[in-house]
């Protein structure tokens, strides 16, 4: 499992830029927002929590097809499925690799990009924390969607349609935590609910994703 994780990480970093792309996309979304809504810093500060979360969510979404698609096309997924490691473990390792190359970097750069949107500095910590707690859920849910659409030729748009409604609760709690931090309220409740979604997804979704992969490999 660790070897598979290392392989996926190496592939993500070395082979044709999935790794930096999500970050660059996140930066572009954050850059575009002021063009759309105007450069007033008060205005930007109000929408910053939502925009930062939506940007991270979209960046995560666009890199989802990387989890299974390439391995499905060149047949390595079939080989992996016959390996002694159960498919659930493979799913978990590949999702973890996705999180390490997408969710984690997004979390790390979000406080820096938050400066561009004039997010109050006392909310920076909560933004970092909420993304750190929430992005694993985004990766797990996304892996389920990627497993559903892996056999399809033009699955990209369908993948978004399937995954985005599933992202709603995560987005609500994550963005709400940051908004509360901006207003100076306590952020424990949304963060804990966010952790519930993340932990629940990590515990249960690998089984569903693996079941779905088995159907698609049939």
């Amino acid at each position: 499992m660790i070897r598979l994780l290392a392989r996926d990480l190496r592939l993500a970093v070395r082979a044709g830029g999935g790794f930096g792309l999500a970050l660059a996309f996140f930066l572009i979304v954050i850059t575009l927002v002021p063009f759309g809504v105007g450069p007033g810093s008060d205005q930007l500060a109000v929408i910053a929590p939502g925009i930062l979360w939506i940007g991270a969510l979209l960046a995560c979404l666009l890199s989802l097809d990387r989890i299974f698609q390439a391995d499905f096309e060149d047949g390595s997924l079939d080989v992996l499925a016959t390996a002694p490691l159960p498919l659930e473990g493979i799913t978990l390792a590949k999702t973890l690799a996705h999180w390490l190359t997408t969710g984690l970097p997004l979390t790390l750069v979000a406080p820096i990009l938050a400066l561009l949107l004039n997010l109050p500095s006392h909310a920076q910590g909560t933004l970092f924390l909420s993304l750190a707690i929430g992005t694993p859920a985004l990766s797990m849910i996304g892996a389920f969607g990627a497993a559903l659409t892996v056999g399809l030729k033009r699955g990209g748009l369908l993948l978004s349609l399937l995954v985005l409604p599933l992202y709603v609760p995560t987005l609500i709690f994550g963005a709400d935590a940051v908004r509360r931090a901006v207003d100076g309220q306590t952020v424990t409740t949304p963060l804990m609910l966010l952790a519930v979604i993340s932990l629940g997804s990590i515990a249960l979704l690998p089984f569903v994703s693996a079941a779905v992969l088995r159907i698609n490999l049939r």
């Binding site: 849910i141 389920f144 559903l148 056999g151 399937l162 409604p165 599933l166 709603v168 609760p169 609500i172 709690f173 709400d176 949304p190 609910l193 979604i197 979704l205 569903v208 079941a211 779905v212 159907i215 698609n216 049939r218």
Partner: peptide, 26 residues
Amino acid sequence: TAADLTSYLCLVGSIFAILSRYAVNF
């Protein structure tokens, strides 16, 4: 295959629909 995949989607979707229902309230 379609029946299998959509069934799993319906299963997971139901859980997240209920989650969304209460998250939206919040």
